[in-house]
């Protein structure tokens, strides 16, 4: 209950914040929110269960495709019917799309999770890396994904009642915040509850967890699926905001940025994930603005590269010197005493 209250408050706070921003910032906010949902899933996966996915961008893409294809289908199915004119015409494609995103990202997550249950560290990382590399080929091989050009997602216009008050970008930022809230709140609840304990138990000592009656395989696969669902919703957010899903937007660089965001924010920390998501969304733009003043040749060389180099340095420094990430700048969370752990698991 308290959790829901808090989630509601934070969501309202974020919704209110959109009034302070002009349309372009609201677009940036919406993008960062989509990224946040995915990073939140990733940071819990890595922080709590010790499984590293380098392919969360692909899970976002899966969610994006699921959203776009389902929403388009539903939109054309209800076209011409009385439903299409009312509020339902607006809401149905959106809700169906979000459900579609959950299905596709959940299914892909389940497949990967089954593999993840049997694998550790580098193997899972390598497998997910191969997945990222295969995405463009998969998009051009799988019928309906339309190759490099990608698929369109329906435009969600501002409801008439709000049209006088807010612009499209702000409306999309609202949708983004609401969807992301739906993605992140369950993660918070799960982390605080028994599932979170099980994940920590498996991460700390698989054998001990097994002795305590926890099936490590199921816990790991379950964690992977949850994380994928959050990433899928993040992909849906980006599809709502940009009305387009294409493999080029989910390349290796993007997946690595998700890892960077999780690491910088502090693995396992959802607040840190928010900070990390904003950083990876805004820093490239800041670098762009800064390099625009430089001579063209130097500027072009730095553009798109300088922020990557900076992120690389930060990731190394954080990992070597400050494994808690930026979240550790805030008051530290006390580690679980082991007796609490074993009691609860039993």
């Amino acid at each position: 209950m308290r959790l829901l209250l808090r989630a509601g408050l934070l969501t309202l706070l974020a919704l209110g914040a959109t009034f302070l921003l002009d349309p372009y910032r609201n677009y940036q906010l919406a993008t960062a929110t989509g990224v946040f949902a995915a990073v939140a899933g990733l940071t819990l996966l890595v922080g709590l269960t010790g499984q590293l996915s380098l392919g969360h961008g692909v899970l976002m893409a899966a969610g994006g495709y699921g959203y776009a294809l389902t929403a388009t289908r539903v939109e054309s199915a209800i076209e011409g019917t009385p439903v299409a004119d009312g509020v339902g015409g607006r809401l149905l494609p959106l809700l169906a799309g979000v459900a579609g995103a959950l299905v596709t990202s959940g299914l892909l997550g389940l497949l990967l999770g089954l593999a993840a249950a049997r694998l550790r560290g580098p193997y899972l990382a390598g497998l997910t890396l191969a997945l990222v590399i295969a995405l463009p080929s998969a998009a051009s091989t799988i019928p309906g994904l339309a190759g490099e050009q990608g698929v369109r997602a329906p435009f969600v216009p501002v409801p008439d009642t709000l049209a006088l008050l807010i612009a499209t970008e702000q409306w999309h930022a609202w949708l983004a915040i609401l969807v992301a809230a739906c993605a992140v709140t369950p993660l918070v609840a799960l982390r605080a509850g028994r599932a979170g304990l099980r994940m920590r138990a498996v991460h700390d000592d698989e054998t001990a967890a097994r002795l305590a009656g926890v099936d490590p395989g199921r816990v790991k696969a379950g964690a992977f699926v949850l994380s994928s669902l959050a990433a899928g919703l993040g992909g849906a957010v980006l599809a709502i905001v940009t009305q387009q899903v294409s493999p080029g937007a989910y390349g290796l660089g993007f997946s690595l940025l998700l890892v960077v965001a999780a690491v910088i924010g502090g693995l396992g920390s959802l607040g840190g994930a928010a900070i990390g998501a904003v950083l990876v969304t805004l820093l490239p733009w800041v670098v762009d603005q800064a390099t625009a003043a430089l001579p063209a040749d130097l500027g072009h060389r730095l553009q798109g590269n300088l922020e990557i180099a900076l992120f690389g340095v930060v990731v190394i420094v954080v990992t070597v010197l400050r494994p808690g990430g930026l979240a550790r700048l805030f008051p530290d969370r006390k580690p679980f005493p082991s007796h609490v752990l074993s009691n609860t698991v039993r």
């Binding site: 560290g121 990382a125 690389g312 340095v313 990731v315 990992t319």
Partner: peptide
């Protein structure tokens, strides 16, 4: 692995 990824980005 994470440090290696950072190194990739830097290089």
């Amino acid at each position: 692995i994470i440090v290696a990824i950072g190194l990739v980005m830097v290089l």
